[in-house]
Design a protein around this nucleic acid. Structure first.
Length: 466
DNA sequence: AGCACA
């Protein structure tokens, strides 16, 4: 429609609250910009380090007249606008507001997210990090972890001002060489702000510190040694074992709920906590057991198995670096079964007699006398009044980690007193769960109120913690 | 020295 939209140059520029500044010194800071512009009015937004050379910037005034006054002043001034002795050229921007593209990491807060590039986690101790960042103020807490981005640390200061001074001074810089092992050639710090305001440090360890609480217990399993990588017989690095399993769920055609995971993983011992989250477009879950042994048994047993028939929701298990999950007690993505609020533990159905704790030692399970086994199966197959067990109690009753054909009395739990929910695809009498790739749960059915976790777990007295 | 960002 309009006949022309030619670029607007100096003689035709219309005034704007937003000014475009160029020929700034390299990586001019926001503070320097504000110093230059604030005599003319209130600055409501800035954008620094713009352009390929990162030497341009935008400044938005609260009022158009303030921008006009700055442009007019320097248009007639004998002294040009300067930053660090460099002449700065100022024009009206061709836009009328700065679109705030500040990522969350640029929103100041008292906690910094520091990525230490080019190092292994073992190269930089938490003491070194503490030393470096303490130069700017009291460091309250540090938590370190390894992510895809590399070795990272969250560092909590008293306030955003202290955190900012540390960020401004250290972002892009390196930790002094004398604080690092000799083989480290470079270790640039990339620093942004975390959205956290208060880190939840549970233990003093080589990964995390709370300097405000010297009496915080030391976590023995998180200290040097146990959590270090173990070299296996093949010479490859083995994952250090953990009481927390990381489950990646492949081919997730059906929703996998906290309840479903609880049912599946409780077959091996008390599940203390569960957290489900998305990562790299897939679904993962952390499942916390009280001890490494239980986790190891569950890992061996469940690796490669599918939660549902037909290859759906295949589990891949590894050890997590976590030892104690910090999860919401009751949400759709997490559960803390160690919390003793009964209103949150309806799924545990207290009041049912605790069955003998036969599932704690899965190695022994196939050897159990048929009578005990049947009794146990029958007990857990009784649905609570008014409830329909939505998983297959027959499958649940069998140890999914390698039932040995012939040793499990398959007749006893097909008896008439036990309702059967055998999947049509599973021929009865076979031993489907001895092979990876077969289901651990009954298929979810559309339109049915599926409550896989709605009944007690075999042999698992509810764990209420202390 | 000459207009950003997803």
């Amino acid at each position: 429609m309009s006949t022309s939209s030619q670029p607007q140059f100096r003689y035709t520029q219309t005034p704007s609250k937003v000014l475009h500044l160029r020929n700034l010194p390299w990586e001019c800071t926001e503070e320097e910009l504000v110093e230059l512009c604030k005599p003319f009015g209130k600055i409501v937004n800035t954008k620094c380090n713009v352009g390929a050379n990162r030497n341009q910037a935008f400044v938005e005034f609260a009022d158009l007249n303030q921008a006009i006054s700055m442009v007019s002043y320097y248009a007639s001034s004998s002294e040009p606008a300067q930053v660090r002795g460099k002449t700065v050229y100022i024009q009206y921007s061709n836009r009328h507001e700065i679109v705030n593209n500040k990522s969350p990491g640029d929103t100041p807060g008292n906690v910094l997210l520091v990525t230490i590039e080019g190092v292994e986690a073992n190269d930089v101790t938490i003491e070194t990090i503490h030393l470096v960042f303490s130069a700017f103020g009291f460091v309250h807490k540090i938590a370190t972890f390894e992510k895809a981005a590399g070795f990272q640390a969250l560092i909590q200061f008293t306030d955003a001002e202290t955190a900012s001074s540390a960020r401004n001074a250290l972002d892009g810089r390196s930790i002094p060489r004398y604080l690092l092992p000799e083989h480290v050639t470079s270790c640039h710090l990339r620093i942004s702000y975390s959205a956290h305001t208060d880190l939840n440090i549970k233990f003093q360890s080589h990964r995390s510190r709370d300097y405000t609480n010297p009496f915080l217990p030391v976590n023995p399993t998180a200290m040097e040694g146990l959590m270090q990588p173990v070299v296996g017989p093949d010479g490859k690095k083995q994952e250090p074992q953990s009481n927390v399993l990381l489950a990646s769920i492949e081919n997730m055609q059906y929703a996998v709920t906290v309840d479903v995971l609880h049912t599946v993983f409780s077959a091996f011992g008390t599940v203390q906590k569960i957290a489900i989250f998305e990562k790299n477009g897939g679904t993962q879950a952390l499942i916390q057991y009280p001890d490494v042994t239980t986790a190891a048994v569950a890992k061996e047993a469940l690796e490669g198995h599918c939660i549902y028939d037909g290859g759906y929701c295949k589990l891949h298990l590894s050890y997590s670096r976590h030892t104690d999950l910090n999860v919401k007690a009751y949400s759709d993505k997490s559960r803390d079964y160690t919390i003793s609020d009964p209103s949150l533990l309806a799924a545990q159905v207290p009041g049912l007699p605790a069955a003998p704790n036969v599932w704690q030692n899965p190695q022994a399970a196939p050897l159990y006398p048929g009578t005990d086994y049947a009794a146990s199966a029958a007990m857990q197959a009784q649905p609570p009044p008014g409830q329909v067990p939505a998983w297959d109690p027959n499958l649940q009753a069998r140890p999914p980690y390698g039932s040995v054909p012939g040793t499990v009395p398959s007749q006893s739990y097909q008896s008439s007193s036990v309702p059967t929910y055998v999947n049509a695809a599973t021929p009865s009498g076979s031993s489907p769960l001895s092979q990876p790739g077969v289901s651990l749960m009954r298929m979810p059915q559309p339109g049915v109120n599926v409550r896989p976790g709605g009944a007690p777990v075999p042999g698992q007295p509810p764990y209420y913690g202390q």
